[in-house]
Design a protein around this nucleic acid. Structure first.
Lengths: 343, 343
DNA sequence: GTTAGCACTCTTAACTTTAGAGTGCTATTA
DNA sequence: TAATAGCACTCTAAAGTTAAGAGTGCTAAC
């Protein structure tokens, strides 16, 4: 796929870079002016015709310059940008380090702050997916009774992310019994993930003579109920928290984005898809995800915690976004977040 | 102010109602067709000229029909709509009652659900302001230690709204001490508001010999720290949760709205302003609040709990929104919410 | 292989035209 | 005297026209 000779690469790069900067179709004459390529417009035109035949660029209409196709952007990101070192806007260093440290925030707060900062500097919509609850490492768990059979579960993960979930039990338990249950869990399962806890709990319970029957049933119910279902709140928060809504998108597109993000299934699928390929990932033209998101791209990276599985943080912007600047930006933010969360 | 004779009222009503329905300037001929007013276009034109002189309507340009001014809308809402019974769209009855009851949600969940439903049926942006933490009635309070000096405070209000707040104490306490503190608070102050608790705590403490010194300092710190500062999350959630973004607003306006809503000060001011005048309140042309919100209006109502002070729920939409339908809608939603929360 | 020259295409902006909606004024009617 | 018909007038919005310019592809020359 990356079988383009040097001249073609050079010209393709010039076209895409110029189009990203100026948001206009790029003509042959323009390139001779902006880039010292040592060729005449006519020659460039020939090469452009070839690139067009290969599917990297296209003409909006017969007498216009060329704009990159999705294939073109893909090549630009995968091949052309790889060949040159990407530099990070230095403002972000300072901003992220101060924003993420000076607050005495919980893990959740840090993650949100990172998203806000990212949005501010990228001028895109920032999105965050929190670490999977399933694989979250338990630091503390507490059950608080607040109605006959209703119990509020508070989970605190290793890195300070707090989850609340109300669950309804089959029968009423006293706060005292609930405290026993949470103490038991805290002692036995501290430092393990919910997933593991659920798997081990049956084994453990009947070995441990000290546990009364009620406790068993409480614990089983609890572990069944604690699931991924609270993911949505969190993601949306981080999105809307970004005050500067994108200039690039139409209202319909924003609707579509919000719709997609409200869709839990979608977010989970996305997270799975990217957490396989650790590190940064760029989606060009998101129509695979939703048809209406054709002209949008997403740059997203996983972040990790001390032991937990990763969440994801990234941005959504126009397909012609400034990848050169934004890819390192997302990358750095994810790294900074990882560092802060595992500190 | 409401000194318009019957004919003028009738014609003003016809203009505003038609303009709301069709979003076009309304001409004299149109009115004779749509309303059986028993007058000729010429007569109506005369009346229109008078109404224009009085400032209730205006012409976008010389040869156009008339559109309502803000003063016109104000009059329409305060006088004209008062004179006729407003009816509630019946779908909402069913929808709200099922949505708010069938879920085994906490108070927070109920409030959010109400906002979502409201947004869905009004096609506007729904906003919610949660009840003031200060005056929230305590049902349960719990402190969970999760780092040396860091404590997660979980408050559950009378109506099931859950608040989390991380606080940092001056010295480290054991979970055991914290449990004592929360038990003490639960016993002594159950059913009172945070505000009252704070006021009474000093008195109570030195009377009660059973309390050790550490506990006193914990409690004082806690009550100092628990403030209104967590309001923002909640409001934003409820806003963004509404999937259908408004068709009416420009991107700039949406930005502005989000900006305003992120502004804690603004929300608090707004809440205070409306909670004085219990019940529903309509803001026409919100440029008082933010200049960029000139063409937007807000219909907002307070809702209450068993004993708590009220929060607010409402919608933001175009100035030419369908008040006739939306005012009772917001009103009913607020009432339904009040009912559910105090059940 | 590269380039200059040139005819050709197509878009965009500016200007012109036209139809029609709605008005205000005046004279007329009940 | 209040209501109305008639009419000239104004202004907008849509459609049509024109002209400039940007960029191309092709061909012939270097």
């Amino acid at each position: 796929m990356n079988t383009l000779d040097e001249r073609r690469k050079k010209i393709l790069y010039a076209i895409i870079q110029s189009h990203i900067d100026l948001n206009i179709p790029i003509g042959s004459f323009f390139i001779t002016q902006k880039f010292q390529v040592g060729l005449s417009p006519a020659t460039i035109r020939n090469t452009m015709a070839e690139l067009e035949k290969l599917g990297y660029i296209m003409q909006p209409h017969t007498s216009a310059g060329r704009v990159p196709t999705e294939k073109g952007y893909r090549f630009y990101i995968d091949v052309l940008l790889e060949e040159q070192p990407l530099s990070l806007a230095p403002e972000l260093y300072y901003e992220l380090s101060t924003r993420l440290t000076d607050t005495e925030k919980t893990g959740t707060g840090i993650i949100k702050e990172a998203a806000k900062t990212l949005s501010l500097y990228s001028h895109c919509l920032a999105i965050v997916i929190p670490p999977k609850t399933e694989e979250m490492i338990l630091k503390r768990i507490k059950f608080i009774k607040y109605e006959k059979k209703k119990v509020l579960t508070v989970l605190i993960s290793e890195n300070g992310v707090v989850y609340n979930k109300t669950i309804e039990l089959e029968k009423a338990y006293s706060q005292n019994q609930l405290d026993k249950a949470s103490n038991y869990l805290n002692n036995k399962f501290h430092g393990l993930s919910i997933k593991i806890v659920r798997e081990k709990i049956a084994d453990q319970l009947h070995k441990d003579k000290m546990i009364c029957d009620q406790l068993i049933s409480i614990l089983l119910t609890l572990c069944k109920e604690i699931s991924l279902s609270d993911i949505d709140d969190f993601t949306l928060n981080s999105l809307a928290g970004t005050a500067n809504l994108p200039d690039f998108a139409t209202i319909d597109q924003i609707k579509e984005i919000l719709g997609a993000i409200e869709d839990k299934q979608f977010m989970l699928k996305l997270l799975n898809q990217i957490s396989d390929s650790l590190g940064i990932r760029v989606f060009v033209g998101m129509e695979i995800i939703r048809p209406a998101l054709k002209e949008l791209s997403m740059v997203i990276s996983t972040y990790k915690n001390k032991k937990d599985t990763s969440g994801a943080i990234g941005i959504i912007g126009p397909t012609r976004m400034n990848y050169k600047k934004l890819i390192p930006m997302v990358e750095y933010t994810a790294k900074a977040l990882t560092k802060m969360l595992s500190a």
